[in-house]
């Protein structure tokens, strides 16, 4: 598709430290965070600091609590104990500073691509459209702006979802396995796209994934969650852009994967309740 020019990425990454851009990121602190569903403890006293502008990947087996961490951060669920602060402020006051990308694109099928990106943007019609078109251009889909989402491929839909998240200039981007359903090639394209936009905009990024290679390719820091607490906190010292074929990359990926596999699978445990129970989505209740 030629959406992402690798020279462009190099130019961005080799540019002097993006110190200015990093200011826009937000510092996150988890303070004794716990969450339980019925009798099952999903998160158990999580204490964690994430620096402003840092790219953190959270890996772990399914059901380990990594998605719950993200949903708590997004304010979609409430913690049982402990709290989260963004730049020292309680989460409730900072909702506009973070945006969430879901596992599926969740585009509104009755709005055109550009109107989906513009969802919830304040301002005049013309300004909103201009901002949305610019965000679409960033993900290489400006020419599809006036089509229905049903005409796009899965990868394109996720790119629209990315544009929709980033048009708000969030200081924190949460990514909940957004690339899980994409094919391998589209995924690598998306990695480059996300990395480029992250470097350009300087937001803090938190990526939940089950793909260790993806974590190592994108993150400054890889966290492993097991039994509701952080079992591994590993810095990724590789320079960007990262070469997937390199020995250092492979060694690191192997380390993390071995560590993940040490732990027995969670298949026998009860799955977390489905994300949205029926009563929760009432629009005006």
């Amino acid at each position: 598709m030629g959406v992402i020019d690798s020279n462009e990425i190099r130019a961005l990454t080799s540019a002097p430290a993006p110190g200015d851009a990093r200011k826009s990121g937000v510092h996150i602190r988890f303070d004794g965070l716990s969450k339980a569903y019925a009798a099952r403890q999903v998160l158990n006293d999580v204490n964690l600091d994430i620096d402003a502008g840092e790219f953190v990947a959270i890996v772990g087996r399914s059901g380990c609590g990594k998605s719950t961490l993200l949903r708590l951060l997004a304010g979609l669920e409430q913690p049982g104990a402990g709290g989260i602060t963004l730049n020292g402020q309680a989460l409730q006051q900072t909702r506009d500073e973070l945006r969430l990308m879901f596992q599926d694109a969740r585009l509104l099928p009755w709005r055109t691509v550009v109107d989906n990106v513009a969802l919830g943007l304040p301002g005049s019609r013309a300004d909103v459209r201009r901002a949305a078109l610019a965000a679409l251009a960033d993900v290489g889909l400006a020419d599809r702006a006036d089509e229905w989402p049903s005409r796009l491929s899965g990868g394109q839909r996720q790119r629209v979802a990315l544009a929709r998240a980033l048009v708000h200039r969030p200081r924190l981007l949460l990514l909940d396995e957004p690339l899980g359903a994409l094919d391998a090639l589209t995924r690598i394209e998306m990695h480059q796209l996300i990395e480029r936009l992250w470097l350009a905009q300087g937001f803090t990024a938190l990526l939940v994934t089950h793909d260790v290679a993806e974590a190592v390719a994108l993150a400054d820091r890889v966290l492993l969650i097991e039994d509701g607490s952080i079992a591994l906190d590993l810095r990724v010292p590789l320079a960007r852009p990262r070469e997937r074929g390199s020995a250092a990359f492979a060694a690191l990926e192997d380390d993390v994967l071995r560590r993940v596999l040490q732990h027995p699978p969670l298949e026998d445990q009860v799955a977390a309740p489905s994300a949205v129970s029926f009563g929760q989505w009432r629009w005006a209740a």
Binding site: L76, F102, W281
Partner: peptide
């Protein structure tokens, strides 16, 4: 319901959530 959740997380509520989603 996932679209409603998305709408909420993008700051829609009440009338705007009703009208757009």
């Amino acid at each position: 319901a996932s679209l409603v959740e998305m709408g909420r997380s993008y700051g829609l509520s009440g009338w705007s959530l009703f009208r757009h989603v």
